[in-house]
Design a protein around this nucleic acid. Structure first.
Lengths: 153, 153
DNA sequence: TCATAATCGTTGCATATGTAACAATCCAAT
DNA sequence: ATTGGATTGTTACATATGCAACGATTATGA
């Protein structure tokens, strides 16, 4: 791994590749939970999770908190609304805005999935080992701290 | 972060989310390099990188090494062939198979991008700090070691 | 040998995604 | 008050992706 002109690259040692690969592996595992259990897509899961965490929000705010493009949010909100897991209400102070909140049923499903998410995280920590898990967590936090200030999509 | 029924989830502390977020942030940065510099898509970059690393390969082998679905590989190979960055030749021992290899021009562009990739990684390490970078690297390796044995796509 | 199964790479199709444009609404500055 | 400029959320369109089916070829095994 020294300096010999660097005209060669080992993809499996390249951080962008490793990051994407690990993210895919982990996401795929967790996606099985919310897909099998609730038939949710990832944008739908994220929207549910964000509303569950923050309560009533606008679509724009959901996108900011969950790092999703506004069209993703728009479509996920529409889908969750059709399921009756969330309700919209127009903000009378600013009629461009919709206030979005989970319904009772949406909240119930959120709580169930939140528990499964915690269980997943614990299991992952168990499988990886505490030390490596904490290393990962620390490294990801550093990425966020250094690169996270610009892009929101 | 204790045990109180876990009916609530902080998305920004949830590893699958953090991983995806970090992967997006880093990938977006690096993608700018191969997009601006060479007009490559991510599947094309990965295909180029894999052929540059391993030499002549079949499409299936490229998918295995770069974790890409075979249709992604197929389309990326087609695109790189049109650019004349790689050439196909049918394996006479097994005529189902195509042997893929970079052309001189493909190899030239690979070397250039490989250098930029190394520079990117060094810069990332610099920006993150050595300790956090190494923690990330270690954590990602652990994910790969524990979850990487099943899925290849 | 012959038939069945497996493998390789491509393509049709449906879905997922981002960009750009848009209508509606609000804000700022005259 | 009015006009030009932002902002909010939706949609049309083009592209990207994965799945399933396919033709061609090779391997297996009766």
């Amino acid at each position: 791994m020294e300096d010999e002109e660097k005209t060669f690259l080992a993809l499996e040692a390249f951080i962008p590749y490793k990051l994407n690969r690990a993210a895919e592996l982990v996401s795929r595992q967790f996606a099985r939970i919310y897909k099998d259990r609730a038939g949710l897509t990832r944008p739908e899961w994220r929207t549910l999770a964000t509303l569950g965490q923050y309560g009533t929000l606008t679509a724009t705010a959901i996108g900011a908190h969950s790092s999703m493009h506004k069209t993703k949010v728009s479509r996920a909100v529409q889908s969750l609304e059709e399921r009756k897991w969330l309700k919209r209400s127009i903000d009378e102070q600013d009629r461009r805005v919709e206030r979005l909140a989970l319904t009772r049923e949406g909240a119930r499903n959120y709580r169930e999935l939140a528990q499964l998410a915690h269980a997943f995280q614990l299991k992952l920590r168990d499988v990886m080992g505490e030390t490596d898990f904490d290393a990962l967590d620390r490294g990801l936090a550093a990425v966020e701290a250094r690169l996270g200030k610009d892009i929101s999509m």
